[in-house]
């Protein structure tokens, strides 16, 4: 069984903040890391590897720094990794990412399962998995919270807002993995360091039958952003407990929330 996991290299979302002086987002100089949601997918793949003797390949589009993300995933137990390097400043929309990733996966055929994280921490688009599935003409199951697979097929449980579904089907298929499915193992820093960079194969657009125009033609572009004003009244109510309570009730009635 051959499993391919799509892994994204992202900026640490917990560190993104607004520079108080310039009122701008601080996006540069932040630490980068593996998309935590993709770790769940890698973990699930490595579990299947242990169970069924599957091989696990990783595919990533990212800057050179993405090597550290791939090393971490390889240290978790994946077998090989493919990186299409782009400039750190290159933006890609979901259509571009899906196209390139699909081509990378095609090159690795035969593929039985494609696993993706449920969402990426920086984009929060939740599209790429489904788009790749459509492009590769694969059925897909999203938000998989439990997975069992064997050669030829899978059974997956998926949790939506109000329902829990159980689906089964034949491979090849694409699954987006919910973060609730497992707790990804943590390889030690040494184990990550020991992964040789030479294990990461570099892929060029030309290898995929594409050229640079793919990078220059997004379907969606970000024009700009605004920092929402956090306007809270910050009214502190004084007095004894009963006095404060009475004042508060009056305020809430004025606000029409009571």
């Amino acid at each position: 069984m051959h499993i391919v996991v799509c892994v994204k290299h992202v900026v640490d979302s917990t560190e993104i903040h607004v520079d108080k002086k310039t009122n701008e987002l601080v996006l540069r100089g932040l630490s980068t890391k593996i998309n935590d949601y993709d770790k769940n997918a890698v973990e699930e793949a490595v579990k299947l590897k242990k169970e069924l003797g599957a091989t696990v390949s990783l595919v990533t589009i990212g800057p050179r720094d993405a090597q550290k993300t791939l090393k971490e995933a390889l240290a978790m137990g994946a077998d090989d990794a493919y990186l299409l390097q782009i400039s750190p400043r290159q933006q890609l929309d979901t259509a571009q990412a899906s196209l390139i990733l699909s081509k990378m996966i095609e090159k690795l055929e035969p593929v039985d399962l494609v696993l993706c994280g449920e969402v990426s921490e920086d984009g929060y688009n939740s599209q790429t998995g489904a788009r790749i599935a459509e492009r590769l003409h694969l059925p897909h199951v999203s938000y998989v919270t439990k997975l069992s697979a064997q050669d030829g097929g899978y059974v997956a449980e998926s949790t939506l807002e109000d329902t829990a579904e159980t689906l089964k089907g034949a491979t090849p298929a694409l699954l987006t993995i919910s973060s609730a499915i497992n707790v990804p193992r943590l390889p030690t820093a040494i184990q990550i360091m020991k992964v040789r960079t030479s294990r990461i194969k570099n892929v060029k657009l030309a290898d995929l039958g594409l050229d640079d125009s793919v990078l220059e033609t997004p379907k969606v572009k970000m024009l700009g952003y605004e920092i929402p004003e956090q306007e809270r009244k910050n009214i502190m109510i004084d007095g004894t407990a009963s006095e404060a309570a009475a004042s508060l009730v009056k305020y809430l009635q004025e606000e029409k929330v009571m």
Partner: peptide
């Protein structure tokens, strides 16, 4: 739409 976990609201344009 919200970007970066809600720190900001981004404006996106469709090219086609």
């Amino acid at each position: 739409r919200a970007i970066y976990g809600g720190v900001a609201v981004g404006e996106f344009a469709f090219e086609a």
